[in-house]
Design a protein around this nucleic acid. Structure first.
Lengths: 125, 125
DNA sequence: ATAATAATAGTAATCATTACTGATAACGAT
DNA sequence: ATCGTTATCAGTAATGATTACTATTATTAT
């Protein structure tokens, strides 16, 4: 894999964000530094980085892939009202039980749904 | 919500399958009973049933929505080779911990990835 | 520096899903 | 039971995120 300025930029953007941006959002950020960068380049590199396990993908109900630069074991909480994605601490509870079935776990995606604090308060008011 | 023969058929199909079919697969099954049923009808009713929480959706890496007629708390194991989806027992371990953060959980999606038994054996041979 | 070729910008194509439209069917009121 | 209202349907067109394609540019080993 050759070096490319564009890929380094995309990697930096994801690794330095604590939200879970879509390709389009990353494209927007990238254009601030690299105005001519192509959306296709963003998608191609996101897929590359995901294949290399440099980043994680989250398939959500908004039909867009969200990317996460934090590859440590952790799960996510998605607000069912606003769709906001919040990082949760490492759960990793049942894997042992699952491996007793003969299934070897190489990754996990654990998502909980509900209202985030902001939206829960909104509803009350 | 009015009764419709098509919706009943779609509901029956999902509830009586233990796999996690896509809209297209359900459409295929439905056409065996109802040859003129429309793909749009299948999609519309799947969305309706999901909104009513009669069924569950699974957003996976194959970019297709998979549907699950079992709405009881359970998680899924997806083979990263063949994409096969296997039901797992109820994990539901950390919700209490999560709710301590002030987040109220109304649903969860917990997916583990790895090789299913079939694919694991294939690799060895 | 040069050649070989990975990576890019820009655009076209793909494909799951959704929206639209005129026809059909469910069902409460008569 | 028929009628009128309107949800639902079949069929098709549109949408939109993602991927593929192509000519050009940039990286890197020699």
């Amino acid at each position: 894999m050759r070096y490319s300025r564009q890929r380094e930029l995309i990697t930096d953007i994801i690794k330095n964000r604590c939200d879970h941006p879509t390709a389009d959002m990353i494209y927007g950020s990238a254009r601030e530094m690299e105005p001519n960068i192509s959306l296709g380049t963003v998608y191609r590199n996101l897929k590359l980085l995901a294949d290399e396990k440099e980043i994680i993908t989250l398939e959500t109900e908004d039909k867009k892939i969200h990317y996460d630069g934090d590859t440590s074991r952790h799960s996510h909480f998605i607000c069912s009202k606003c769709g906001n994605i919040i990082d949760l601490f490492k759960p990793a509870k049942t894997p042992a039980e699952i491996e007793e079935l003969g299934l070897s776990i190489t990754g996990e995606k654990c998502i909980y749904y509900g209202l985030c604090n902001l939206c829960a308060n909104e509803t009350i008011e």
